[in-house]
């Protein structure tokens, strides 16, 4: 499988990374080079293999239902580019 500039543009849009036309043109061969290389994985017969789910055999630990956190609004907002009266400000959104 290989990508063209339209695909690169689409991926960049999905990933929310603005790209210029020049960047797209440069990325097409670069990504194809990498994708071509990783495609050797297709050689491996994995028909009867399960995908790895946990690298070290282990299952999920659950915590008890206690309120142990929150009430740290100052800390949550401390690094905000637009701290608006206790809210995070973002450009106006129309839903």
């Amino acid at each position: 499988m290989s990508v063209d500039s339209a695909t690169v543009r689409k991926i960049a849009s999905l990933a929310r990374i603005a790209v210029t036309d020049d960047q797209v043109e440069a990325m097409v061969p670069e990504l194809n080079n990498i994708l071509g290389w990783i495609e050797q994985l297709g050689e491996v017969d994995t028909a009867s293999v399960a995908p790895m789910t946990a690298v070290i055999a282990n299952t999920l630990r659950l915590r008890d239902d206690f309120v142990t956190d929150g009430g740290v609004r100052e800390a949550v907002l401390a690094n905000a580019p637009a701290n608006q009266h206790g809210f995070f400000g973002v450009p106006k959104v129309i839903e």
């Binding site: 990783i38 994995t46 293999v49 995908p51 790895m52």
Partner: peptide
């Protein structure tokens, strides 16, 4: 891609 890679990881 991803599923195949996860299977190879098992191998």
């Amino acid at each position: 891609y991803f599923t195949q890679a996860s299977k190879v990881r098992t191998l």
